[in-house]
Computed example of a mutant assay.
Amino acid sequence: MQFRDLKTQYKQNKSEIDSAIQEVLISSQFIGGKQVRELEQRLAEYVGVKHCISCANGTDALSLVLMAWGIKEGDAVFVPDFTFFSTGEVVSFNGATPVFVDVDEKTFNLDPEKLIRAIEKVSSEGILKPRAVIPVDLFGLPANYNQIENIANHYNLLVLEDGAQGFGGNINGKMACSFGDAATTSFFPAKPLGCYGDGGAIFTNDDKTAELLNSYKVHGKGYNKYDNVRIGVNSRLDSIQAAILQIKLKAFKEHELDGVNKAYQLYTKILKNIVQTPYIPEGYYSSFAQYTIKLESKEERDGLQEKLRENDIPSMIYYVKPMHRQQAFSNQIHKEEDFRVTNELCDTVLSLPMHPYLKEEEVEEVCSVIKEYMFKRKK
């Protein structure tokens, strides 16, 4: 059993993917070109924004937006404590300070009430200037943008949606990667829409931001790449990855999103009274980058993972260590009581096999092992 079955995905789309790659090889236009332009146009249309700017990876996507916004030393950027390292890393990389905020115990996404407290605390201390917030669409579920955007407007903060895991999700029909002042996603192979290497994209409706991003991502170019008007980076999506993504985007829209949500429904139907299953608020639609359950304790979680391993069933722990405990951020002083939910989640969550090609009998096999393990523990 595969945790994320990229082999079956390739087999089902093999002829189209091979043909798309071959077209690039024949043209020999490996950087830029029509494949990249067409992909950016199709992604912008799908998300429902004016501009899509592709780049080398999801981390660069976040960093490029902060560069375009002029985020710098002395600025505070608010980041959920329960997420992948890169969301906080890019803040420090641009010279600013990440301020970690605990998450909601039901959705695992940034908690709006705790965000307010964090902003007020930073403002009252007067050392850092609150500038932006980066909500993460964790495990495929969009963050609470209704409240977060209202809070950001009140405190004059920019909102950068980290949709690395959330591409394809929506809130009442408004697509993930269309929230805030700008949004990003990742095309890392295991993401909801993944390529065969690294890749990323930025989405925005702001013309000036888009112009700056297109400059920053190619060495700060002006009218061409040999006219350099600012210090930038080298962060381009190559044509082969763009060609692959066009084929995979078609499959993603036609059946893959439905596939992961059918797997979610079956998992939840079987497990809802056995373990804590993912919570999807009314009006929200998840792209299920992961299907993550929550156990009662670290001992129970670790024991279940071992039981699954004994039955050749893969599982993953996202995340074993909260952001505020990462060594890279050890210069910051934190109070553990400010991160109660995150600390608990790091000890109790477990992600199960999840992908569009998961068979019904495979879901039932996973659930059978979980039920057996949990019933034995409760005896």
Rank of each mutant, 00 (worst) to 15 (best):
G283F: 12
F85K: 04
F30E: 03
L304P: 10
I119P: 11
I270N: 02
K34L: 02
K225H: 13
E149N: 06
S239K: 11
K34R: 06
E73V: 12
Y319P: 01
E161Y: 10
S86H: 02
G222N: 08
T59N: 13
Y226A: 13
A176F: 04
A76M: 09
T107G: 02
E299G: 00
S19E: 10
L350A: 12
S92W: 05
P322S: 07
S287Y: 01
V366L: 04
D238A: 09
K294A: 03
K106L: 14
S286F: 02
T348I: 15
E161M: 09
K34Y: 08
D238N: 09
I231A: 01
E344Y: 11
K298P: 00
N13G: 13
S297E: 12
T209V: 15
S286M: 12
E362F: 06
K14I: 06
K225Y: 15
E300D: 04
L64P: 00
G33T: 08
V260L: 09
Q41P: 13
H334A: 10
K359Q: 13
A132I: 14
S239M: 05
K114N: 14
G200S: 08
R42F: 02
H324L: 13
E125D: 06
Q147L: 10
E361Y: 13
L110H: 12
N153P: 01
A328K: 03
F100L: 12
Y285L: 04
Q326M: 11
V349Q: 14
R325D: 11
N94K: 15
V47D: 00
I17R: 02
S19V: 00
C346R: 08
